[in-house]
Design a protein around this nucleic acid. Structure first.
Length: 278
DNA sequence: CAATCAACCTGGGTGC
DNA sequence: TGCACCCAGGTTGATT
């Protein structure tokens, strides 16, 4: 479910509200979502810790603590991270609840139980960081860097852009939106792109993500921010889940195809595989 | 390195 | 209402 803009929204909601808070208790309603440590270990190591920072890397949420370890969360498809007053009725599918000294609870809820919570050392977080591709909105991600990355790869763009070790943060929605914006077909080989196409794709990736962040994410089914509010970007998507609707650019009906096992939305005219003479 | 598929789980929507 | 079936915003690991 959540991609970079959704995770960024949750982190921006949580950071000002969580920094300085202390974890005073933890309830684990479904132990399966705790990775690595035993659940007892998880509770013992976390209770009493103070939160000193909340940040994002790719689609991971990293909570920096007063101790040496860091709480790392991944929401996968249907995970939610919600900050609620403790007296609020429990959220459906709540799996782990952190009680805070403020009287609030940080609740991890996940219908499908794919999401995971880890307690990791600095070295483990560094290892995660090194295994991930660049952050598309950071200044280190330059057009020249992206050009070299894309030129070196032979795979099709759709799975390549979904690959978090290649580029961090994109998921199914924003890959389709970026490729549409750049007018490039998702099955094109990366190393077949012209310099101009790579430049278009670079700009498209960044503008799609930035626009979605301004819209506080995309809600089609289950995504909500840390206060339970849906995003607004579903009102501004051009192709994702728009099969049969008219392409905003040329009016051709949007098509749904399957690429690398993923539902994929394209304008068959704007994103034609072969150049058609005008 | 690239591609495909299964697996992890469950809910929601659709069509009969 | 019930039921079968399809779809799902992610990631990993096995296999070819």
């Amino acid at each position: 479910m959540p991609e970079l803009p959704e995770v960024a929204t949750i982190v921006s909601d949580l950071a000002p509200r969580l920094v300085g808070r202390q974890v005073v208790g933890i309830e684990i309603l479904w132990p399966g979502v705790i990775g690595y440590h035993s659940t007892g270990d998880f509770q013992r190591r976390l209770v009493g810790q103070r939160i000193v920072g909340v940040r994002r890397r790719a689609k991971y949420i990293i909570v920096d603590l007063s101790g040496a370890e860091k709480l790392v969360l991944h929401l996968r498809m249907t995970g939610r991270l919600l900050l609620r007053p403790a007296e609020t009725e429990q959220d459906r599918f709540a799996r782990v609840v952190f009680r805070l000294d403020s009287g609030d609870e940080l609740r991890f809820a996940d219908a499908r139980k794919f999401g995971r919570l880890y307690l990791w050392s600095t070295d483990e977080v560094t290892g995660l960081d090194r295994s991930l591709g660049p952050e598309p909105l950071e200044p280190e991600f330059t057009p020249a860097l992206f050009r070299e990355m894309v030129r070196r790869r032979a795979s099709r763009l759709k799975p390549l852009l979904l690959d978090q070790t290649f580029l961090a943060g994109l998921g199914n929605i924003y890959v389709d939106e970026a490729l549409y914006e750049a007018r490039i077909h998702p099955t094109r080989r990366a190393n077949s792109l012209s310099d101009e196409e790579i430049a278009r794709l670079y700009c498209a990736v960044r503008s799609v993500l930035q626009t979605a962040i301004m819209d506080r994410g995309t809600t089609f089914a289950s995504y909500v921010d840390a206060l339970g509010r849906p995003g607004k970007h579903q009102l501004n998507v051009h192709v994702y889940r728009q099969a049969g609707e008219q392409c905003p650019r040329c009016g051709t009906p949007i098509e749904r195809i399957v690429v690398a096992g993923r539902g994929t939305y394209v304008c068959p005219k704007c994103q034609a595989l072969t150049i058609v003479a005008a």
